[in-house]
């Protein structure tokens, strides 16, 4: 059994005539929480989409849980939440969860469990269209958690949340990786959030700047924090404009 949950080799993706990922390599360890950080527009979502298997790929190989990304056997083993919440606005929170749970053949109490995990039990009967932005993205996250997937791919799940909720969700992510042994890949454009993850992938302009533990990244760049490390790494690649190395 491979120790990597996801392996990406030479991945090139072209969207709308422009190359957004330029022959990218990276690997994601199993049973750990990996943060994928980088500015918006750097290709984080595209990389995650390629891992889920919904992205048309120009070149390269993406292996997920030992199989080619997007293969039939993987459907239902991966939980995926996009940045914009993919749920039905004209159904209640609970009806959304029931529908997706039925497709995934999740256990009956699964919907109640994930409602509790994302803190939406009290809103469960409300129509999704009436929820706030934060509640909406938590509903989408709840769907991704439904069948206790081995691999969770979450694109900016904490965007627009108040700091208390954000903290709670990160605690949940750590818990899922720690106690339940799930592999999590969580993207964010906030460096601070990444600092507490076990693994870190730093991305810029369709390339991986660094893939290491947060401590390792700081050490190898001789930086105080990840923000500084990012600046230094970006400077090294020569792609930076006006950023002193």
């Amino acid at each position: 059994m491979n120790s990597c949950a996801v392996e990406v080799e030479g991945l090139r993706v072209v969207r709308g005539g422009t190359e957004v990922l330029h022959g990218l390599d990276c690997s994601i360890p199993r049973s750990a929480l990996t943060a994928l950080v980088g500015p918006s527009g750097c290709g984080k979502s595209t990389l995650l989409r390629a891992m889920v298997g919904v992205q048309v790929v120009a070149q390269g190989r993406v292996t997920v849980l030992g199989r080619a990304a997007g293969s039939r056997a993987l459907r239902g083993r991966i939980g995926y939440a996009t940045e914009s919440p993919a749920v039905y606005a004209d159904l209640s929170v609970r009806d959304n969860l029931r529908y997706f749970a039925a497709i995934l053949k999740a256990e009956a109490p699964a919907a109640e469990l994930v409602l509790e995990q994302v803190g939406l039990t009290r809103e469960s009967e409300r129509l999704v269209a009436q929820l706030s932005g934060g509640q909406l993205s938590r509903t989408s996250l709840a769907v991704a958690l439904l069948n206790q997937p081995e691999l969770l791919i979450l694109d900016e799940p904490t965007i627009g949340l108040d700091p208390v909720l954000r903290e709670e969700l990160w605690r949940l992510f750590h818990q899922l990786a720690g106690d339940l042994g799930a592999t999590l890949i969580v993207s964010s454009h906030i460096m601070d959030e990444a600092a507490r993850c076990e693994q870190l992938l730093m991305m810029r302009d369709g390339r991986i700047l660094a893939g290491d533990t947060p401590e390792g990244v700081r050490r190898s760049t001789g930086s105080q924090d990840l923000e500084q490390a990012f600046m230094r790494l970006a400077g090294e690649t020569g792609a930076a404009v006006g950023t002193p190395a």
């Binding site: 919904v54 459907r75 239902g76 497709i103």
Partner: peptide
């Protein structure tokens, strides 16, 4: 457009 189709396409349906 809402992304629910993409989500369904990652599921066993």
């Amino acid at each position: 457009r809402s992304g629910t189709l993409e989500r369904l396409m990652t599921m066993p349906i």
